[in-house]
Structures are given as C-alpha cells and as structure tokens.
Write a protein that binds this DNA or RNA. Structure first.
Lengths: 136, 136
DNA sequence: ATTTTTGCTTGCAATTTGCAAGTGCAAAGA
DNA sequence: TCTTTGCACTTGCAAATTGCAAGCAAAAAT
C-alpha cells in the first residue's frame, strides 16, 4: 500500500506524499502534545477522525518511520504509539504551522500562551520539547 | 465550495483545512521560487498536476487569501498568480519542510545549496526572501 | 461465564481525484 | 480578414479515496 513511485525529487513534494493530507499531521500533533497515545486517544480528538482513516494513516506514518508502536505496560489489549526521531523532527514544522495560523486566525488561549513562550526563544523551546519527547 | 464548518479550533487543523492536501503547497512553492506564475507554468511543474485539480486549488488558495490573480502586462489572455502577504508568511513553514526532508531524503543539489544558505542564518534568509517576494 | 473495552476490519454510499477531451476568448499569422 | 494557435479554464466519466456505520477477535473487567 506504500507509494509506488514519487512524483518528483522535490523535498516538498516528497514530504507531502507522506503526510500531505487533512489528518496525518493531526496524529503527529496529538503525539507532540501527549507524547504517547492509544488508538482510542486519537479517536477522541476534537476533529473526529473516522476509524478506518485513522488505521490507514497510522500505518502510513509507521511505514515511513515517523511513529512506532510499542506495548502498553498495563495491558496487552492496548497499543501505544510514539514519535520516532524522524517524527520529533517535525516539531519545527509544527511550530511554524501554529505561528502562521496564529497570525491569521483565532487560536485558543492555551495555545496562544504556549506560542508566546515559543516566540521568546524558538531554538530553546524546540530543544527542550524535543528532549522531552525523546525521554523514556 | 468553501469549507462549511471547521473541525475544531486547533490552528493545525484549521491550516490543514486550507492547504492540507498533496497539491496546494506545491503551488505555493512554485510561487516562492518564481514569484509569479501563469496557469500554464503550474501545469509545467514536475509533479504534473491535473488541470481540473489545479483550477480547484487555485480557487481555494485565492478564497483563503493566500494568492491573488493579476493582469499580465503583455496579454489579456494570460493571468498572473502571486502570493499575498499571508502566502509569503508560509515561507518559514516551507523552509522547515525542506529542512526536514533534507535530513531524511535525498534532495537535489541546487536545493541543498540553498538550504546551506538558510542554515547559516535562517532569520536573515527569510527576511531577504520575503522582501523580495513582496517587491513590485 | 458474561459483558465490556480495545484495536482494528469490512461494506457501502458519497465525495474527490485523475485523465482526456472540449470550450471560449485573445492574440498571432497568412 | 480569416484562420490558426495559445491560454485559462470546464466538462465528462471511471477509478480511487473518504466517511459513516456496523462487525469482529482478543484481552480485560465484572
């Protein structure tokens, strides 16, 4: 089910072939906020992704090395998803999305507060947040 | 044909509703490289977008204030597309996409050279490139 | 032992995509 | 002037993808 052939060598095009849709980056977002999520956690997000779409996106993201599955410590029935380093490296991109949207749309107060921190020292924020996502 | 209701207040979700697909950001990319493009220019890009998809994406991007049409100085038959300020403000995002892709995939030498410049002083690069896109 | 939870899969209608061909207007050529 | 070409789309239609609802097997809880 993976992409058979790429459209071009353009890095933007290659990136979009992986996560260029309305859902994939929301999964990444959830994992950046929560660090690890179950399948059910993703379903609970505000945007209400359909379960078959979620399954398909999780598979694509895993195939492309952006997320990994791991065993839940408490239960065999649960699966935990986490970002890989490649996924964590999407943090700068995620931040720029937020900053762009903040400039042109209304964003929730809590996010606005976080973005205020980001703007104080973007590099530091990314470093700290990355380290945190890497832990454990 | 515009989005009737948004999925959530999340800035990532709102952004993806506008340009979250496999094509929209390629149009933005072309305009960042070329500053202004005709309909035919977009069709000529390596990724070979279908003409009906192109028309629909141009409309959505225009409706959302990311690009504008303007008259071609030489001919009434031609239409020029350009980025608005809102579109130019996608530059940091576009750069991060490129940097992420460069880390994990092979990118063409000329783009690699540009990214080397970017990494020397990201802020300066954005400032210069933005100013240039704004001109005229 | 039975019910509930969890992580999916399946079926199907509706929407979107992708390809090819067509259209209308402007401009260039004969 | 008449015809042909170029340009910016639009249209038709098959194929793929999406979105919704229901189903399912294994594990956990009761």
């Amino acid at each position: 089910m993976a992409d058979s052939k790429k459209r071009s060598d353009c890095p933007v095009s290659c990136s979009l072939e992986i996560w260029g849709d309305k859902w994939s980056l929301l999964i990444v977002r959830d994992l950046m906020f929560a660090k690890q999520c179950t399948y059910g956690d993703f379903l609970k997000s505000d945007e209400k992704i359909a379960t078959n779409i979620l399954a398909s996106r999780l598979q694509t993201l895993e195939e492309n090395g952006i997320i990994t599955k791991l065993n839940h410590p408490d239960s065999k029935a649960k699966v935990l998803y986490r970002l890989t380093q490649k996924g964590i490296d999407l943090l700068p991109l995620m931040i720029e999305i937020n900053l762009w949207a903040e400039k042109y749309y209304d964003v929730p107060a809590d996010i606005k507060a976080t973005l205020k921190e980001v703007k104080k020292d973007k590099g530091k924020f990314i470093k700290t947040a990355s380290k945190d996502l890497k832990k454990q």
